[in-house]
Simulated scan of single mutants.
Amino acid sequence: MEHGACHENDDYSNTALNLNKPKFVTNMRHQHALVLVGRDTIFGVHMTQYHHEEHKYQMILELELPEEVRKIYRDLRQTWPEMAFVLCNAESDLFMVPEIGGGSIASFRANIFMGLFPLDKLLPEEEENEHFFPWAPSIVKPLNDVEFEVTVKRVVQFRPFNHQEILPKFANYYVWGDGNEAHMTHWQTAHLASGPFDAPAFGPDYDHIMTLKHAPNWLDAPLLKAGVSVSVPAIKLRNATKKKKPDIPQVRPFKHDGKIEVLYRGIGQPYEVVAGYTYVFGPQVASSPSTIPELDPSVTTSNSPDQMMFMPATPKEYWADARLSSNIKDGFKDE
């Protein structure tokens, strides 16, 4: 028994994971993208990346915006209800996600951007940059004229990934909100996918940030405000016929106004929620590139043809002026 335990430790000591072990565990301060949901109560949902230490966190924050910024956001949300609005801390005010999750930082300077700049219009040096950040004023224009101070009113969820967690049979989601507004995000699993002597790779799984049509009438207000865990039996992540291969959905699983059956805590009889808009969906940003499954050509999808990713494109009027010049790749057509 003891000999076997020593042997397992010896094996681990020679793996790629252990050889890359840092002497001191910390995170690099960085810019972070928070997708905004809600109108009366505004929340920011952190976009994840399993293969970047600084983004290996699910986090939901209730935010307070300056009144003039709040008005801009609410007016544009009314005009563009299906648009993803992305709040990003300024390049001059970098932080670690755990500093927000742990309460040591309660405010930061930020900008708000619309959608995602078309990835096929990036410059070669941007595409090759491991820490490229697509919401930069040199790429897209912020909604606000100047940076503003964001206050974190409360942390709704702070969850560091554990790479030994197993992908569940059915998708799990987190439901939260306030008043008559409610939202859902996929409970992600950044499981280790690489072999012991390979470069570490994590996934696949998918990010999904969406709103609900209204707060569920079966969920008490204090539970909604704190957030609850539900399962969605309609989304199967492990197909028995495919052995251990994950079965990640390739298109947005819920239609606007569609009814979704969910199991509270993953058990019992189903309850019903009604889907609103999806702002982010897919494994493309979250998962390690080597784990992302190929698109099934037989599946009709409104996603980009070469990637499993949905996020509304930045309207052309919000491109930075330099992006409208002739040095950008030709062939772009307005939707």
Score class of each variant (00 low, 15 high):
residue 261 E to S: 14
residue 217 N to H: 07
residue 215 A to D: 04
residue 209 I to N: 03
residue 214 H to I: 03
residue 205 D to N: 14
residue 267 I to N: 08
residue 253 P to M: 09
residue 246 P to K: 06
residue 224 L to W: 05
residue 219 L to Y: 06
residue 251 V to M: 11
residue 261 E to I: 03
residue 261 E to Q: 13
residue 247 D to C: 03
residue 226 A to S: 11
residue 233 P to R: 08
residue 217 N to S: 12
residue 272 E to K: 07
residue 262 V to I: 12
residue 262 V to Y: 06
residue 269 Q to D: 14
residue 219 L to F: 09
residue 262 V to H: 03
residue 258 G to N: 07
residue 245 K to I: 13
residue 231 S to Y: 02
residue 241 T to Q: 15
residue 223 L to K: 15
residue 229 S to E: 11
residue 212 L to M: 09
residue 275 A to C: 05
residue 203 G to F: 00
residue 202 F to L: 15
residue 232 V to I: 14
residue 242 K to Y: 03
residue 215 A to L: 08
residue 226 A to D: 14
residue 255 K to T: 14
residue 208 H to W: 10
residue 230 V to S: 03
residue 231 S to T: 15
residue 225 K to N: 13
residue 267 I to H: 08
residue 256 H to M: 09
residue 217 N to F: 08
residue 209 I to G: 00
residue 251 V to E: 07
residue 248 I to H: 04
residue 236 K to P: 01
residue 225 K to L: 10
residue 224 L to E: 02
residue 228 V to N: 05
residue 230 V to R: 06
residue 253 P to W: 11
residue 216 P to G: 00
residue 262 V to R: 07
residue 258 G to S: 14
residue 253 P to L: 11
residue 262 V to L: 05
residue 235 I to H: 01
residue 241 T to W: 10
residue 259 K to W: 05
residue 272 E to H: 08
residue 252 R to G: 07
residue 217 N to P: 04
residue 207 D to N: 08
residue 231 S to V: 05
residue 236 K to F: 10
residue 252 R to V: 15
residue 250 Q to V: 00
